[in-house]
Simulated assay, not measured.
Amino acid sequence: MLVTLGLLPIGVPNALGLGLLLAALNIVPYIGLVIAAVPAVLLALSGGWLKVLAVVTLYFIINQIVGNVLSPYVLGRTSNLSPAAVLLALLVGLSLGGIVGGLLAVPAATLLKHWLERYWIGSRAHGQEQ
């Protein structure tokens, strides 16, 4: 939606299709947006370098908003993790396992959190000093 609304004033053809492409590729965190930006930049080439710069700037701003604000908030609400924990889990998952690690990072962090709450924090060993 944001891409379509941003590409319409710039004058890039097929703005709705590019917005739908981004929606489909948004399943892959961070990298899906970059892949979806390639067709938009190619379509903007016919309008000159100013239009290409506007498209790249638009996708950069949307990437920052989605990657640093919306995704951690939504994932944090659905997984009961804080947005900082979501960003940290994604950072660790992407650095250790690439795309697959990024996809599995938040579920793994949620599983670890629930495991710690159920088995470690509730146990007698948690409160004892060594």
Rank of each mutant, 00 (worst) to 15 (best):
T4W: 15
L53M: 13
P83N: 02
A109E: 11
V66I: 10
M1Y: 11
L43A: 06
A24M: 08
A44M: 07
S79H: 13
V66A: 09
L50R: 14
A85Q: 07
G11L: 07
L104D: 06
W120V: 04
G127V: 07
L20Q: 14
A108S: 13
G102V: 01
G6P: 01
L53E: 13
V52Y: 06
G67Q: 12
A44C: 01
V38A: 15
S82R: 11
L53F: 12
N80R: 15
V69A: 14
L88K: 09
L90H: 03
K51R: 15
G122M: 03
A105F: 01
V86Q: 03
A23F: 12
L42P: 00
G67K: 03
I99Y: 01
T57M: 04
P72K: 04
A125D: 06
S79V: 02
N63V: 00
I31R: 08
L87K: 10
V55K: 05
L104W: 10
W115I: 09
G76S: 05
H114R: 13
L20S: 08
V86E: 03
V12F: 08
L111I: 12
A125N: 07
L20C: 10
A40Y: 04
G67V: 00
L50P: 00
L33Q: 12
E129M: 14
G48N: 08
T4R: 13
E117I: 04
N26P: 02
M1A: 10
A37R: 01
G98M: 03
N26Q: 12
G47Y: 06
L53A: 15
Y30D: 08
P39R: 01
A109N: 06
G19L: 00
P29I: 00
P107E: 00
L70K: 01
Q130W: 14
W49I: 00
A108H: 09
V106L: 08
G19N: 13
A37K: 02
A23L: 13
A37V: 06
A85S: 15
A23V: 05
G17V: 02
A105Q: 05
A89T: 04
A54I: 03
V34E: 08
Y73T: 08
R77W: 12
A54F: 05
H114N: 13
I31P: 01
L75V: 00
V34D: 08
N14A: 15
R118S: 11
L5K: 11
G19W: 04
I27R: 12
Q64E: 10
S71D: 02
P107G: 05
L81A: 03
Y59C: 11
N63Q: 07
